[in-house]
Computed example of a mutant assay.
Amino acid sequence: MVSFTPRGGRMNQVQRKAFDTYAERWYLEGDDVAAAGQQLDAAALFGRKAPLVIEIGSGMGESTAAMAAARPDINLLAVEVYKPGVAQTMHHLAKTGVENVRILRADAAAVLTQLVPEQSVDEVWLFFPDPWPKTRHHKRRLVTEDFAELVASRLRKGGVFRLATDWEPYAEQMLAACTPVKALRNPHAGWAPRPEFRPRTRFERRGLNEGRQIWDLEFIRR
């Protein structure tokens, strides 16, 4: 199971400065962690014990910083593959002044499979993943029943899997993929309200401006 196509990309001046300034403090390279042959120790990584939240696909990080600021009680591990996005996230974190985020550049499925212990995560967030709208690309979509099973296995009892998309066919696929997973239950019996801590992202605003609806889902680990 692979959740992404590796992406490099050149960093602009702001991103390079942020990366050079904050990488040692906030950044982990997935390959380096995997090479160490150990699973993640969240308390050691963040320097404190707190509920662990994993955000899959943090993008350019503006909403990541805002959500971390809104939830100072959590340790937020942002998983992203696009290096300029990682650096831009650092820029936003520094501007916001939050300290409860660490950024891991890696494949999210591999992170969950290899690095995250079972029943160790309090929440997993997957907000506006690539919908791969063309039929021939549907196989690239991250959310399948197998992936939902993987997420469920990493959640603690009572942990929450939160998803959102502005692409209705993908929303329906997400609902269909997560509903059969016996370890998960949908407290809303359908679509969920938008979490209060999640800001309107640029992807969400773009979708709304183009007339698309936003579809939120919430599943709880039994």
Results as ranks from 00 to 15, higher is better:
residue 149 E to G: 03
residue 139 K to F: 03
residue 132 W to Y: 14
residue 115 L to N: 01
residue 149 E to R: 15
residue 129 P to Q: 05
residue 141 R to G: 05
residue 129 P to F: 05
residue 134 K to I: 08
residue 119 Q to V: 10
residue 132 W to F: 15
residue 131 P to V: 14
residue 116 V to D: 01
residue 134 K to V: 10
residue 113 T to W: 00
residue 146 D to H: 10
residue 130 D to S: 11
residue 146 D to E: 15
residue 136 R to V: 12
residue 112 L to D: 04
residue 145 E to K: 10
residue 147 F to A: 12
residue 125 W to N: 14
residue 121 V to M: 11
residue 135 T to K: 15
residue 120 S to Q: 08
residue 120 S to V: 14
residue 138 H to T: 12
residue 140 R to N: 12
residue 112 L to F: 07
residue 137 H to Q: 14
residue 120 S to D: 14
residue 139 K to D: 12
residue 133 P to Q: 04
residue 134 K to N: 07
residue 141 R to N: 11
residue 114 Q to L: 05
residue 127 F to L: 15
residue 133 P to H: 05
residue 114 Q to W: 02
residue 125 W to R: 13
residue 117 P to V: 02
residue 138 H to I: 11
residue 117 P to Q: 02
residue 141 R to I: 09
residue 137 H to C: 10
residue 115 L to K: 00
residue 125 W to Q: 13
residue 142 L to S: 03
residue 132 W to G: 11
residue 131 P to L: 09
residue 142 L to C: 03
residue 117 P to A: 00
residue 149 E to P: 01
residue 131 P to S: 14
residue 139 K to G: 09
residue 113 T to G: 01
residue 126 L to R: 02
residue 142 L to G: 07
residue 129 P to S: 09
residue 112 L to M: 06
residue 113 T to S: 09
residue 130 D to L: 06
residue 134 K to E: 11
residue 142 L to K: 04
residue 130 D to V: 10
residue 120 S to I: 12
residue 117 P to R: 01
residue 136 R to L: 05
residue 124 V to I: 15
residue 140 R to Q: 15
residue 118 E to W: 02
residue 138 H to R: 13
residue 127 F to M: 15
residue 127 F to G: 07
residue 131 P to I: 14
residue 115 L to G: 00
residue 145 E to N: 13
residue 141 R to F: 06
residue 137 H to E: 13
residue 148 A to V: 10
residue 118 E to R: 06
residue 119 Q to G: 06
residue 121 V to T: 14
